[in-house]
Amino acid sequence: MAGALPDGEPVPVDGSLPIEAVAGAGRNGFGVYVHVPFCASRCGYCDFNTYTASELGGGASREGYADTVLSELKLAQNTINPEKVDTVFVGGGTPTLLGADDLGRILEGIDQAWGLADGAEVTTEANPESVDLDYLRRLRRNGFTRISLGMQSASPAVLRILDRQHTAGRAPRAALEAREAGFEHVNLDLIYGTPGETADDFAASLRTVIDAGVDHVSAYALIVEDGTRMAARMRRGELPYPEDDVAADRYLAAEAALSEAGFSWYEVSNWATSEAGRCRHNLLYWTGADWWGLGPGAHSHVGGVRWWNVKHPATYAKRLADGASPGQAREMLTDDDRRVEDIMLRVRLSDGIPLARVDQRGAEQALEDGLLVPGAYGKGQLILNLRGRLLADAVIRDVV
């Protein structure tokens, strides 16, 4: 399970927000995130706020979860009134452990509360073994437009090290089934740099996602989080720690294979075959828009106010049953906070950020170090080149 949530000031019992935050809600776009905290088993690298049946305890269940989320939605509806909902993203955990009709009821509730925009993007995450063609068809009928499947690797050995439950061939088959079910937009997630993974293993994973016919690929370097089973195994010497040079080689391999197959990067860890295939919900996060996060541990941001819900599903359910906000704490972002976050996120995008919004000396140094696109720099825009993407965190530190 995830670590402790940050400190902050108390959230009002009714969840109310400052007038100035409410007045601007959704002005730059509005999304809804729904957190589903249930998993059939725990992956060794995962520190998300998720719970297996044995970890859940009393006071919370999958069966009543949709109704609990709809209770928070009612509170949210009484708090803000954005013009429309541009995107919905259901994440986890494993959202598809809930019935497709339960996910559909939550989506219908969002539409009734705030109204889905015409052409709204509606995504759910799924583990490959948690869906089949019939389930995917029901999801599509219930209004979902996009699905993100956690593939991680095509190597059985790597999947075992990650404690994944699906077989190596299940993820691409699930992607093909999603297409058959009517999903135009399908993502496959990869993790690279797992101990024991070879260059050939990762090359096979890249071929698999390309051959699956998806229009989006996310690829992330393995991060070993304290408190996870994998971190404990590494401390005991059972597994070697990831190596930065290996991660860089894997990233270069991903860029080469995906670009040759017609994908283009639009964020350091994300590639799509077209602008329509980009994840619009994540782009809302990355460009400073507003969103309401429903569910235990979910974070929200509206008009410069960020808050986060209590973590445990039972505590979350009890708060709502008592008619209170499930918010644990919140913070008011200063103008400088928002400026720094805007730089940290936009520098990672293929569109970059105007030079006028970053530290000039840092930008000049990044250009001198060969980390930026010179032509864009000459036009007043900071955009990372391939080498800069490998060193994105360093560039961000220099230009904040």
Score class of each variant (00 low, 15 high):
residue 2 A to P: 00
residue 11 V to D: 07
residue 11 V to N: 09
residue 13 V to G: 08
residue 19 I to W: 14
residue 30 F to Q: 05
residue 34 V to R: 01
residue 43 C to S: 11
residue 43 C to R: 04
residue 47 D to N: 15
residue 57 G to W: 09
residue 58 G to H: 13
residue 66 A to G: 01
residue 71 S to C: 04
residue 78 N to K: 13
residue 101 D to K: 11
residue 102 D to C: 06
residue 103 L to P: 06
residue 104 G to V: 08
residue 105 R to T: 03
residue 106 I to D: 04
residue 112 Q to V: 12
residue 113 A to C: 11
residue 115 G to I: 07
residue 120 A to V: 12
residue 121 E to G: 01
residue 121 E to M: 07
residue 127 N to W: 05
residue 129 E to F: 02
residue 132 D to Y: 04
residue 133 L to M: 05
residue 133 L to F: 11
residue 134 D to P: 04
residue 135 Y to E: 04
residue 138 R to C: 04
residue 147 I to T: 09
residue 149 L to E: 02
residue 153 S to Y: 01
residue 161 I to G: 06
residue 168 A to I: 09
residue 171 A to I: 11
residue 173 R to I: 11
residue 175 A to M: 08
residue 180 E to K: 15
residue 181 A to Q: 06
residue 186 V to H: 03
residue 189 D to V: 07
residue 200 D to F: 01
residue 201 D to C: 03
residue 204 A to R: 15
residue 206 L to A: 01
residue 220 Y to M: 06
residue 222 L to A: 06
residue 223 I to D: 02
residue 234 M to N: 03
residue 236 R to Q: 14
residue 249 D to F: 00
residue 258 L to I: 04
residue 263 F to M: 02
residue 276 A to I: 03
residue 288 G to S: 07
residue 293 G to H: 10
residue 297 G to I: 02
residue 298 A to C: 08
residue 299 H to I: 08
residue 300 S to Q: 03
residue 306 R to P: 10
residue 315 T to P: 01
residue 318 K to C: 05
residue 318 K to S: 13
residue 320 L to R: 05
residue 325 S to R: 10
residue 325 S to K: 08
residue 328 Q to L: 15
residue 331 E to M: 07
residue 340 V to R: 15
residue 350 S to A: 15
residue 352 G to Q: 10
residue 356 A to E: 15
residue 361 R to A: 15
residue 362 G to K: 05
residue 362 G to E: 06
residue 364 E to C: 06
residue 365 Q to T: 14
residue 369 D to W: 04
residue 391 L to R: 03
residue 392 A to N: 13
residue 396 I to F: 00
residue 396 I to E: 00
